[in-house]
């Protein structure tokens, strides 16, 4: 579903990404670990078509990602902090963003999507400015669900979430994967990565230097490997 072929990105003389090669299959959860500036977000931005690579190709379902938005119908994005529009309710935000993607849902359908994303019904009509970070993440997930995206990119989605919210988020991610959604997640949360991910990559200075399968490594081993690698 996702493929990076010799993907690289330069900012002036700085290599933000160097010869990245990876493949993520349909329904897989890929977690990218690494320090700040390792190239995780740059990788996501190239796949989202928000920046152009300096070299190589980013493919989504065989289609090259780029500024023209040819792969937009396939993807959804959940940032570290889902801000959206604070003076609109969760329901209104979901309605707006799903209509942007060409999907017009009834109020009932929108409510169901929010419930599926884990947002309680009584919260649906509250203004987003009253939502916690975790609740906003759920609206972000509902937006991804509403457009029936095949691939969901997440940039440090559990950063700043309390353990309960993190756990809820992990459960939702697993459900999404069970529904054959591909998830590509940049994270610092090693334990969550092992818990939710199928594959894990570790990046350093723009290079993918380790790639592991979570069936062969536990959280403790991954932590040791991560600390040793970076």
């Amino acid at each position: 579903m996702l493929e990076a072929r010799n993907l690289s990105k330069k900012y002036g003389n700085t290599d933000a990404l160097q010869d990245l090669n990876l493949k993520v299959g349909q329904g897989e959860v890929y977690c990218l670990l690494g320090q700040n500036g390792a190239g995780k977000t740059t990788t996501i931005n190239i796949f989202l078509g928000l920046i152009s690579p300096s070299g190589g190709t980013a493919l989504i379902d065989g289609v090259e990602a780029g500024r023209k938005g040819r792969t937009n119908h396939l993807i959804a994005y959940i940032p570290e902090v889902v801000q959206l529009y604070g003076n609109m309710s969760g329901l209104e935000n979901l309605d707006f963003f799903s209509r942007l993607s060409g999907h017009k849902h009834s109020q009932q359908q929108l409510g169901s999507l929010l419930l599926k994303a884990g947002l309680k019904e009584e919260e649906h009509r509250k203004k987003l400015s009253f939502y916690s970070k975790g609740m906003r993440q759920k609206v972000g997930i509902a937006i991804a669900l509403s457009k029936e995206a095949k691939v969901i990119f997440m940039d440090e989605p559990t950063s700043g979430l309390d353990p309960k919210a993190t756990n809820e988020f992990t459960v939702i991610c697993k459900e999404l994967a069970n529904e054959n959604k591909t998830i590509f997640m940049a994270t610092h949360d090693i334990f969550n990565a092992v818990n939710v991910g199928d594959k894990i990559g570790i990046m350093k200075e723009g290079r993918l230097i380790q790639s592991s399968d979570t069936t062969t490594i536990n959280a403790h081993e991954l932590q040791e490997l991560y600390l040793k690698t970076i």
Binding site: L48, G49, P79, Q83, Y85, F97, L100, S101, G140, I143
Partner: peptide, 14 residues
């Protein structure tokens, strides 16, 4: 600044 623009663009708005 808050990342919503990325969501707008990936949702399909040009």
């Amino acid at each position: 600044e808050n990342g919503t623009l990325k969501i707008l663009l990936t949702q399909g708005a040009s």
